[in-house]
């Protein structure tokens, strides 16, 4: 289920950088220090883990879908079949330098618990998610009167694995609620390009199609 979301993003011809890697993954990877130990929760087919390992990162993954896991292991990646909602509890405190939740938050049953576990397992967490506050989504509800469907989120409401959508503003509120420090936040526009301008949050919340947050645990 988690992986399907990511596969869709892959198939949706998500914007790719010069090396062919997805821009959102490049943004995530750029936040990780060389040589760090990283856990990628909902790692899909392992594209991010491969990118990280090519940059000298010691990467591990959890993936719910059997196909995703088997593909990763066959690539030589250290990935276990598991569920973000139940299996993060098995990891000890401070086991990693970063825990990454890439395009998976909205598919978890308990996003808050998952985020709390992430910040327990590691001092730093990176979360990327589709921004439900994007103008296109707002317009679809406002004018169309229907649950929105986009290039990156193509499911009908009755079959979507995405059960906990949030906007950038909502996610900030969750960060405050769990006491996470926001060290860095990046919004990607509809073309997957980073929005570089220093803009206020409301602007990001309206025009950012995806968001990537680097969080840290308050000491």
């Amino acid at each position: 289920m988690l992986s399907r979301v990511k596969y869709d993003l892959t198939m949706a011809e998500a914007a790719r950088g010069a090396g062919g890697a997805r821009i959102d993954l490049l943004v995530v990877a750029a936040m990780v220090d060389h040589g760090a130990r990283v856990l990628d929760v909902g790692c899909g087919d392992g594209e991010l883990l491969r990118l990280l390992e090519s940059r000298g990162v010691d990467g591990r993954g959890i993936e719910l879908s059997r196909e995703g896991v088997n593909e990763c292991v066959a690539k030589g990646l250290a990935v276990v079949q598991g569920d973000a909602d139940t299996d993060l509890a098995a990891y000890p405190n401070d086991a990693f330098d970063y825990v990454i939740l890439s395009q998976t938050l909205q598919a978890t049953r308990q996003p808050r618990v998952v985020l709390e576990h992430m910040l327990r397992i590691s001092r730093r967490a990176i979360v990327s998610f589709p921004n439900f506050g994007h103008w296109n989504i707002r317009l679809q509800i406002l004018l169309g009167g229907q649950m929105p469907r986009t290039r990156n989120l193509p499911y009908a409401w009755y079959e979507t694995p995405n059960i906990h959508f949030c906007s950038i503003k909502d996610f900030r509120a969750l960060c405050f609620a769990v006491g996470a420090k926001m060290d860095q936040a990046v919004a990607l526009n509809a073309w997957g390009r980073q929005m570089r301008l220093k803009m206020p949050w409301w602007f990001w919340n309206l025009f950012g199609e995806q968001a990537v947050f680097l969080l840290s645990r308050r000491a």
Partner: peptide, 21 residues
Amino acid sequence: SRAIVHALNAAGARVSFAEIT
């Protein structure tokens, strides 16, 4: 097998785990 994996995770080991249909 999952119990093995959880123990290895708790020990910080580099572990892969796949269940085959």
